[in-house]
Design a protein around this nucleic acid. Structure first.
Lengths: 116, 116
DNA sequence: CCATGACATAGATAGGTGTGAATATTTACA
DNA sequence: TGTAAATATTCACACCTATCTATGTCATGG
């Protein structure tokens, strides 16, 4: 087991941006999360998965929503999975991605949160 | 007056990510905002400015917080200003940046918001 | 009017990123 | 076993970006 934290694990432990200056290590832990979201395709992917019924969607559904090659979608999904924004589950031939809503909630609290 | 909206103007008009799928134009409007935040230096700059007394800070203060050249900091500040996250005001020789907290609030609502 | 200090801009460069084509892997099923 | 379908991986490439150095602009004080 590694001591490395995924960005999603890092984000939960900081007071909001506007409360006190973010330390350099904190900032470097959080930036990858924002980077993962900071792409139109990945934003839509997150939104598609999160708003999909059951909170999950299979790759086949997602591919159809874009005019991009299947490997490109797969690449973006992998990125979102690696930072901890999407969970992955293989069921038969299909792979289902599920949004980690508590990760989004934590991130939102960090960006716009008022309280400690 | 242009019809182009800054990312900050775009973000205020969408329901949360998890509520319904983001449209492609919406996603392309919002991504630049996240991109602007998705850098450790800019995250710390935003945090420094937002948490500074009076909600503003002059560039001289900010430069000292990093081991980066002054032009590099200036570059990052410009980026944050262009997307609408920072306001800029010149007073004498000094330039003061001020965080647009309502922009952060809107962005947070979009990412982690539960309600419409 | 000139020198100095605060900040911005321009140009250059190394490294990162989004994309597609080709290919591999894995599962289901005949 | 072998074929087809769903998804991932590899490789290559054009474009973007974070940074620095050098230089420019602008306001202040002598």
């Amino acid at each position: 087991m590694s001591l490395e934290l995924t960005p999603v694990q890092t984000v939960a432990c900081c007071s909001p941006l506007t409360r006190e200056p973010l330390s350099a290590p904190e900032a470097e832990g959080i930036a990858p999360l924002l980077k993962a979201l900071a792409d139109p395709v990945r934003l839509r992917l997150m939104s598609l998965v999160a708003s999909h019924e059951g909170g999950e969607a299979c790759v086949c559904d997602l591919n159809d929503a874009f005019e991009l090659s299947q490997p490109t979608i797969s690449h973006h999904l992998k990125l979102l999975h690696e930072v901890g924004l999407l969970d992955r589950e293989k069921r038969g031939v299909w792979v289902y991605y599920r949004a980690r809503t508590e990760a989004l909630t934590n991130l939102a609290a960090l960006i716009g949160g008022q309280a400690k």
